[in-house]
Write a protein that binds this DNA or RNA. Sequence first.
DNA 1: TCAAAATTACGAATTTTTTCGTTGACTTAT
DNA 2: ATAAGTCAACGAAAAAATTCGTAATTTTGA
Lengths: 127, 127
Amino acid sequence: MAKNTDFRPTDRELTILGILWNNGPCTVRQVNEIMSRDEDTGYTTTLKLMQIMVEKGLLVRDDSQFKHVYKPGVTQEKAQKQLVGELLDKAFAGSAEKLVMRALSAKKVSSKELDRIKKLIETFEGE
Amino acid sequence: MAKNTDFRPTDRELTILGILWNNGPCTVRQVNEIMSRDEDTGYTTTLKLMQIMVEKGLLVRDDSQFKHVYKPGVTQEKAQKQLVGELLDKAFAGSAEKLVMRALSAKKVSSKELDRIKKLIETFEGE
DNA sequence: TCAAAATTACGAATTTTTTCGTTGACTTAT
DNA sequence: ATAAGTCAACGAAAAAATTCGTAATTTTGA
């Protein structure tokens, strides 16, 4: 019964999920176009990927129209939680501190955001 | 020539790398035993995985002794950087803030660590 | 209505990942 | 020295992920 908590998308699958989280429900063509910016991918390849993801429950399809519309089948929150947890274990030996450090150096973060993060930390400290 | 910067370990491969980062150089048996705590894996399966990882440059092997000893072929730092960057893009729409938030909720972090993270943030703010 | 265009369905092929059985080489203890 | 145990090499197979050609379906526009 580890089924419910298990979420192990492949690289490609996570890319597609990310596109849907960022852009809202999309057709295959839309996803394919966005994905092809980085890496050239044939239309039918993307289609097939998304069809399989539906089978796996990673996507939900609305096929009431000719152009089927796909949306995520897992919440971004759940996915984030799982993925961060795994990364934490495997690449950071469980140290959230190290992960935060890398996250902050990986990308320029505005001082407004930094402030919000500090506030967040303070709420954690208050426990 | 994206080869040099490319680091895309499979799930299994990252698990093995993590074991080596945490425990230092290991024999196949040692890795296999640690890995089998979570998921039963045959000895030769682990061996084969590690041999292939050597071919890919993910591991380095010292075969001067009968029991070959393996160590990581990529630094943990490089791997962390790459993996966090990718996760940031794909699952967090590039928002380091969100990622930090999830990291902090994913795991109990000591107040000592929280303090260090705050200090870290302050150094970022001073730029 | 009919042809062209866009889309989905299907299935096969390819590639990559994962698993493991078998063999032969080396080590250890007797 | 030899038997028992440990290990690496190898290859094959199974499983999973990825790619794409082709056919069928639906829509659109002339």
